[in-house]
Write a protein that binds this DNA or RNA. Structure first.
Lengths: 364, 364
DNA sequence: CGTCGTGGTGCTCAGATGAGCGACCTGGAT
DNA sequence: ATCCAGGTCGCTCATCTGAGCACCACGACG
């Protein structure tokens, strides 16, 4: 086939729309294509077999592809969307992006609960894949991450640290602690759970708790994390468990500061700038600066509306996230968003070249 | 991809059944495969883009194919079966073989009438494809060839000659004459139809008719034919219009001679040897020796049972046919038949090299 | 009758690719 | 500690392959 692949597109347009082929030629093209693509023979071999020049064979193969006789598709098992993943990855300069198809309900609308399950499952497999033995793995909490915890199957020996306190509203259904313990048990490494609420009434209480030996034990690992898994929340009732946990006065106060997204109770504006506030003093959680030093930050976020997608975008622009696990709907909104404000973003051209290598865009 | 393609089969077996891949690796393989197969980039380019060695990319592509992430299939439009065509072609040493899918009726059985239509349509397109300007084209008759005649759309300027007289039973629905005239009109060349029955009561009548100027005019072209299109009949009520046209005594007499197949009222035994009989004297038709001198003899035969398939096999073994147009059911029977008596055939290895032309593995 | 354009062919040469090989790593078993 | 088995990786060299070009056959046209 001719390089550059532009010819493939030419089919779509109409450059030299060739005349329809007769059955003999069709069959010959198909036979040549079968030998090449299915039997793996070289064009030289095929040329000898058919008594033609290798150039003719090459042209035949091009023709067979242009005419759709040869059909190649890239199909990913499970519910992965390769194309969206790749576009999202390069658009936001991520090291990795994992986009799962958004499951739809029987009525055609997105199935939020199922999407969380799929996200969690994908994240679980991803963790088993990217975590190396001896790593220090930090886990935050969200409903999708809870699924991740229960879906974990393979995890090399590593230290598992809880990244934040427990949300009171969800303490009953396992919560962070259970996820951390399960991961550690699976991996065979030590667990550092945090037996404390995420949000406390005041700074003093939080400070007291931070000096608790168990909690301090977890905090001590925050500077040695090699992989962190976090969730991204929006800043409204629907899209954030942290927002839900605050009283109306606090919600409004932070909203007034321009909060758009939240990661482990760290607040960000739409441009991805961290918003510092008194909230930081009343929480038991890893801090953004610490996350920034973690080589691999996996954000798992999806199963939400457009506001959720905007929150994810803001979180990505913070530069903290190196890998994103999300669903197709959010991915599409993110790509459309990037499309518009392409120039106004944080780093250079944004779309490509910036990341190159196999790592994140900035640093190094 | 590794050459030889055997690895593709290895997937089917279980050589080194690799562990299931995580989503990140899956997505990476898919991205690489997309770049290579869909965007047409070279492995070197992809290697640079991903910061890997070209060897790694090559291995990734192999892995992607083994794991089914890359899916390649050869799909022929219409109703052509490329694989059966190719196998049949090489098994019987034909220059070309065109196998159409056998259409099935609503009840699941083969739809004979529809099969004839599909055969005729394929043959029509084939003729438009392989006939060159100035050729002398000979046309026999059968129900499938009648469809061919009505489906002809493109035919270069050529002389069209009728190869045999008209079967009385089918004279009403157009018959040979109409097919020949239509082909000639389409091509813009002269037509040489035969206004006479195929089978006559006695040799004397036949001889008289052969001296008729019109008929002699057609016969005069039999030694200059460049392409002949013939049908293959079996030797029973269902599979031969010639058999149907004979009286019971004649039918039985020729059956006793071991007749298995019939082409233009030329009779053949199961091994493809011509059976000479008095029938030759009572017919108005091209003779086998004349057909043997035609560079391209296209046989259109299908839409029948196993007996029909055996007849087609016998006709092919006669060595007269260079191109066969048939349907999937007949093709499968023919291949199974060839499987068994592969060694016992007529000439040499039988399966290939016989005609070669621009095919065949040996020689050189 | 020559000329031009067009479509199809095969050539050259540089760049892409595969097969085979050895280096290296890793995880046991001795 | 040492060795081995299994796996991955990247190298070399020979082969395969593509892009571009020159050539030829054919038909339209002046």
């Amino acid at each position: 086939m001719s390089k550059r692949g532009d010819d493939v597109k030419e089919t779509g347009t109409q450059g030299t729309e060739a005349a329809p082929l007769g059955p003999a030629e069709m069959l010959r093209l198909a036979a040549v294509a079968r030998r090449f693509y299915l039997d793996g023979r070289s064009k030289v071999e095929i040329a000898e077999e058919f008594g033609l020049s290798r150039f003719k064979i090459a042209r035949d193969l091009d023709a067979a592809r242009e005419r759709g006789i040869v059909h190649i598709d890239i199909r990913l098992p499970a519910r992965l969307d390769g194309e969206l993943s790749e576009r999202l990855r390069s658009a936001y300069g991520l090291r990795r992006a994992v986009v799962v198809d958004t499951p739809v309900d029987t009525d055609g609308s997105a199935d939020v609960a199922e999407t969380r399950r799929v996200l969690g499952s994908a994240a679980a497999r991803l963790l088993g894949e990217i975590v190396r033995p001896g790593e220090v793995l930090g886990l935050a909490w969200s409903r999708a991450l809870q699924v991740m915890g229960s879906d974990l199957v393979d995890l090399p020996e590593c230290t598992v640290v809880q990244l934040n306190g427990v949300l009171s509203d969800h303490a009953d259904d396992g919560g962070s602690v259970e996820t951390v313990r399960r991961a550690a048990a699976l991996s065979g490494g030590p667990a550092y759970p945090i037996y404390a609420p995420l949000i406390l009434p005041d700074a003093a209480t939080a400070a007291t708790l931070r000096s608790d030996p168990g909690i301090a034990g977890a905090f001590a690992h925050y500077d040695r994390l090699t992989t962190a898994v976090v969730a991204i929340g929006g800043w409204d009732e629907r899209n954030s468990t942290v927002y839900q946990a605050l009283d109306p006065e606090a919600r409004e106060r932070y909203s007034a500061l321009g909060v758009c997204a939240e990661m482990s109770a760290q607040l960000f504006d739409p441009e991805g700038n961290q918003i510092h506030s008194d909230l930081a003093e009343r929480i038991i959680s890893v801090r953004a600066e610490q996350l920034r030093r973690v080589p691999e930050v996996v954000a798992v976020a999806g199963a939400g509306d457009a506001a959720k997608a905007r929150a994810v975008g803001a979180a990505l622009r913070s530069g903290l996230v190196s890998t994103l696990v999300t669903d197709g709907e959010v991915a599409r909104v993110l790509l459309a968003e990037q499309e518009h404000g392409a120039e106004g973003g944080s780093g250079g051209e944004g779309s490509e070249g910036a990341d190159a290598g196999d790592t994140g865009p900035e640093e190094i």
